[in-house]
């Protein structure tokens, strides 16, 4: 239910993949003599000296240092976006008219209340909630861990009719979207709930 950087990951992987694929194929084309027709100097028995000569140019160490810093920044940024994001709603402004005062409710308060409400359903063992969107168009994302023998229709109906209704009444607007992810509670101790004779 938390958001991952799927788009960034796929874009990054495609870019890196294309660069390495292109570089690898270019080197192979030269190695097998396919590039000699296009560029006469690039035959299989030519030396890699032109590439090595680039590193011997003056100021190349400074340029390499800058390139290293840029690469390091890309790597660190890419690693940093891997942390799953909750993307909770910004504090909801509930007032009708801001001249008479401002009423704000943080999304975590609503989410915690919804979690408590969810756990009142007997089949639900554990629940997490995230409130996204705005005060006018709230979105509720729920994860419930239900008992492995629970009747799913009852649980889903209870969430839709009771929990979502309570939340919508508390916020004073219909919910624009509700997403429920159902997990199965790791049967804490299957043996504890059975009776052995």
């Amino acid at each position: 239910m938390r958001r991952m950087a799927a788009g960034a990951n796929r874009t990054g992987l495609i870019i890196v993949g294309l660069i390495s694929l292109g570089a690898g194929f270019a080197a192979l084309a030269i190695s097998f003599g396919l590039a000699a027709t296009a560029a006469p100097g690039l035959s299989p028995d030519a030396q890699l000296q032109p590439i090595a000569a680039v590193f011997a140019l003056p100021f190349s160490a400074g340029i390499a240092l800058v390139a290293a810093l840029i690469l390091a920044m890309i790597g660190v940024r890419w690693l940093a976006v891997q942390v799953p994001r909750k993307d909770s709603a910004k504090p909801l402004r509930m007032q009708e008219d801001s001249r008479s005062g401002v009423t704000t409710v943080t999304a975590n308060v609503v989410a915690a209340a919804v979690e408590d409400d969810l756990e009142a359903t007997p089949e639900v063992v554990d629940a997490q909630a995230i409130l996204r969107g705005t005060a006018r168009r709230p979105e509720l994302i729920l994860h419930v861990d239900v008992d492995e023998r629970a009747d799913f229709d009852t649980v889903v109906a209870d969430i839709a009719e009771r929990v979502a209704c309570n939340c919508s009444q508390a916020l004073g607007v219909p919910l624009s979207a509700v997403g429920v992810e159902i997990g199965i509670a790791r049967s804490r101790q299957r043996r504890q709930r059975s009776v052995q004779l």
Binding site: L21, A23, G24, F25, S31, F32, D45, Q47, L48, Q49
Partner: peptide
């Protein structure tokens, strides 16, 4: 590195590995 030729086995191996990883 500069003394190597494009047809040398290490160069070809490295190119194949890079191309495969890219793919």
């Amino acid at each position: 590195l500069g003394a190597m030729t494009w047809g040398a086995p290490p160069v070809i191996t490295a190119a194949v590995i890079i191309a495969l990883l890219g793919l």
